Simulated assay, not measured.
Amino acid sequence: MTRGIGAFDAIESVLPDAVALLAALATQLGDVWFVGVLLVGLHWYADDEIVDRNAVMTVAGLTIGALGLAFALKYAFTLPRPPTRLARPDQFPGLVEPLYVATGTASSYGFPSGHAVTSTVVYGLLAQRLSVRTRRWRYGVAAAIVTLVCATRVVLGVHYLVDVVAGAALGAAYVAGTWYALSQVDDAATAAFGIATGIGVVALAVIGVTPDSVALLGTAFVGLAWCLGMRRRDAAAASAS
């Protein structure tokens, strides 16, 4: 049974090739490198009033866990991507071709969409945990970004519609579930990296030893160790005073 519903052929027939490059650039809002830079920047410039460092660390830990979950499910289902792409890389001239290859193409398995999971988790958690403007405004912006990322994955032809819908639903369920779990503990950041480490172990078992699975588990473990070290330092400083 195919996951396609015939929508991509209709999209491909009406969109000009230039749209492929724009979609490839917009899709980076849900890419690992972009959300990594975003979270590092938020942590670096946090002022603990609007942007709390502990909240950013919590989002980072849960994001790593979400990536591990998405990768594990991809390898558990082993469902392929659509056979047709919106544009071929060789349609673009000069330096544009490698840019499109880097941003608008994808390999590996297609279900669920990792970009949909990542964008839903990152922007949903930021809307949940930061204090910028109103909650309604934050969730509105998050929903708009997630919708854009999901749309670009379908338009580029690297995912079926069901892949991004399932990815967004998985990300939303993950955000809701971890919110409840972390509301029961005092140190949300440490708990978030603990969750990520646990998921990383499961992902390693499902996927096997690959650069992605090792990197995810290693990053989660380093984050957990760092949080535990900071917790011990703070406890020592409190006892000394």
Rank of each mutant, 00 (worst) to 15 (best):
L228P: 00
S119I: 04
G61W: 07
T210C: 07
V222C: 11
I145C: 05
G41Y: 01
A66V: 04
G65Q: 03
L156N: 01
V175K: 04
L228G: 13
A116Q: 04
D234Y: 09
A116L: 09
R133M: 14
A235D: 12
L156M: 04
A60Q: 06
A236I: 06
A70L: 03
T147V: 15
M1P: 10
T2A: 11
W179Q: 15
T105N: 07
Q184P: 00
C227H: 08
A20T: 01
V185A: 10
V165Y: 01
G208P: 04
G229Y: 09
Y160P: 02
V121Y: 03
G171C: 04
Y45E: 09
V162E: 09
S131Y: 14
R133F: 12
R129T: 09
V175E: 04
L86N: 01
G104K: 05
A220I: 07
D212H: 13
G200V: 07
I207S: 04
A188S: 15
P211T: 08
D47V: 03
F193L: 04
L42A: 09
D212G: 10
A60Y: 02
V101H: 11
G94M: 08
L224W: 12
I5T: 14
G167C: 06
A102P: 05
V117G: 02
A173M: 15
L79A: 14
V214P: 00
A196L: 07
L73A: 10
Y139T: 07
L148S: 08
V32C: 00
V14Q: 06
W33M: 08
L62H: 06
T190S: 14
L204A: 12
L99V: 14
G65I: 06
